[in-house]
Design a protein around this nucleic acid. Structure first.
Lengths: 350, 350
DNA sequence: CCCACTTTGTCAACCGGTTGCCAAATATTG
DNA sequence: CAATATTTGGCAACCGGTTGACAAAGTGGG
């Protein structure tokens, strides 16, 4: 009662006999129909070249006729392989991950792998649970900005190939957005606009990426002779940005770079609510160029991360590790890029 | 070389013998250690009450000691069950799905199911591929605002439990946000503000939900004696909203309700760019209350959908269908709610 | 034409669980 | 205490593929 013709062709009237009570055909059904041994069917289907073209064709025809689909569990049982890669993002709600997901997904499809997605809602515990669960059913795992400890990540990586995005963990391959390129342009732009003192609203204390971004900013500011200081924050979210507003106002910097766009948006809105004009009274810049960063008034200037490329590169690296377990080539850092919009401008009165 | 102590306790010095060359313990290892038959182990682990408390305890201890984890494939092979539910969203990039995902995910965790997420990037083809792939490894499937045809959905539903979110497909259970409640308040609000003519910028032509929203708006407008007309659109995205701007300007309506927030944002930004003042020159309202809908200036007034509840309800319904294959209770429609912000206001000169 | 070598297909064991059936052990009852 | 009812555990078959070992068939060279 279940046989729906999936091709849209005229429905074949009768599907050749299946074993009674069985809902889906197996290689045994194909073997019988094609007059060969089941193992030959298995080889024809998964070991190209192992059987003669003639029998292979017979088997393909039979498979087609029965509308055969491999049972992934049966295949996974002896091989352990599922053609699936897991991706865990720390927060599905953070638009920064959109493109990471898209990038990984399309890289996966291109190689006939399926992407399995999970999120940890910013909780290290949930993340560990999700990672463990996934690891059981997946050939490899990508962790995007994980909240896990280095040890936990290493322990996962000991079991199956793991690639980390935007974080550096000893012994675990990672793909990283190189802040320098974008920061260099951004700081030069601010310098051109007459700024001589800027603040960096940092991300989470334990965030490796936040530290890197600050390093990069500090280095460029020194080069330009600009004063730079860090403002600590609570969370890398819109709310976190809002809460940093008081500290920012108390300071004397004329430009602020935030750890990410979410914070920049929160900061901007809070300051605007308090009567400041952006960018006249203060220039604000974010990181990542997320969805919605141009919704604000003024639209946000930001340092764009190669999010899609990061996702794709991570996936490709997992696949490479799967192919030749030895090779672990260092990955090129992917460059960031300045996106100038309306939230940065000339220092007042200059 | 792989045995990482996962508990954080002092590492046990020696893990009891495993069969040579095996990486992870099986029920056979447990059986040996506990001095019982493998089938007893299987029962102790998955059929509570089937074995005596005493042996169950012995087995649990042995399992703990070996750090046992079931092999999901081996379990799935005979049973066909994976404790996994799939969720396919039409566009991971659409913030409206955030809460749907979160809602479904937490409902799944609560029942010890894992959620498997995929997206179709707004393509019916990709969606079908993703759905087919998922169906093979998943106990049930949730389709959020699917792009598939009714027939395709029905054909998927013929194989495993499927629940559709925000769409009505004959014979397939669905959970739906009831526009009426929110629309009723919204139209009353607009009437109070002096509006006598409003436009509805529609979603995709084939969108069931868009039609329902329009019906609801039309009915309420009639009730209030307000003129209402539909403006067709291209896509339910920010860009789609932008492209509707010209048509909207050409009309005489003083308030516009858009199919979703994304469109409302696009429309608003485009009109602002053209010099209109919102809400003075025109009131704009969206649907859903997505992330970012309060980033705009003015922040968007919108009719909030119970997105999280939708996701959770869908998941629970799939689980219910799995439990008692017969029961298919009709699901209560979940109410929407008006969220008033700055993009709607009094008609100019009134 | 024979022999060595390669290709192709078969057999059977295995992956790690689940489950129907049965017998042994234990509990209940008159 | 015997007879019956109920638990409890073991045996073995099964889920649907994969794969090493081997034999049959095919190929080519001398």
């Amino acid at each position: 009662m279940t046989d729906i013709d999936q091709t849209g062709n005229t429905p074949r009237s009768a599907v050749p006999t299946l074993r009674a009570g069985k809902s889906s055909p197996t290689i045994y059904d194909i073997a019988e129909l094609a007059g060969v041994n089941p193992s030959t069917v298995s080889r024809a289907l998964s070991k190209p070249g192992r059987v003669s073209a003639k029998t292979a064709q017979k088997i393909m025809d039979a498979a087609e006729q029965l509308n055969y689909q491999v049972n992934v569990f049966a295949r996974a049982l002896p091989t352990g392989r599922t053609q699936t890669i897991g991706l865990i993002v720390s927060d599905i709600t953070n638009p920064a991950f959109f493109d990471v997901i898209r990038g990984a997904e399309s890289a996966a499809s291109a190689r006939d792998y399926t992407l399995m997605l999970a999120e940890s809602a910013e909780s290290a515990d949930l993340e560990l649970t999700a990672a463990r669960r996934m690891l059981a059913t997946v050939d490899g795992l990508i962790l995007a900005s994980p909240r896990l400890s280095d040890e936990e990540i290493a322990s996962l990586a000991a079991k199956k190939p793991v690639v980390v995005i935007n974080r550096n963990v000893d012994g675990v391959p990672s793909v990283i957005a190189d802040a320098d390129a974008g920061v260099s342009d951004a700081v030069r732009h601010l310098a051109d606009m007459g700024h001589t003192e800027i603040s960096y609203v940092a991300g989470p204390e334990r965030s490796w990426m936040s530290a890197r971004r600050w390093e990069s900013i500090k280095a460029r500011c020194d080069w330009h002779g600009i004063m730079a200081a860090v403002v600590a924050s609570s969370q890398p979210t819109v709310d976190g940005g809002r809460r940093a507003a008081a500290t920012v106002r108390a300071g004397t910097a004329t430009a602020v770079i935030c750890y990410n766009d979410l914070m920049a948006i929160g900061l901007m809105r809070e300051l605007q609510a308090a009567g400041l004009e952006i960018p006249n009274d203060l220039s604000i810049m974010g990181f990542d160029n997320i969805f919605g960063s141009d919704f604000t008034t003024p639209p946000l200037s930001t340092i764009k991360s190669p999010l899609g490329e990061l996702g794709a590169a991570a996936l490709q690296h997992v696949l490479a590790a799967l192919d030749h377990a030895d090779a672990a080539p260092t990955l090129p850092a992917l460059p960031t890029e300045l996106v100038l919009r309306g939230s940065t401008g000339r220092v007042k009165g200059s």
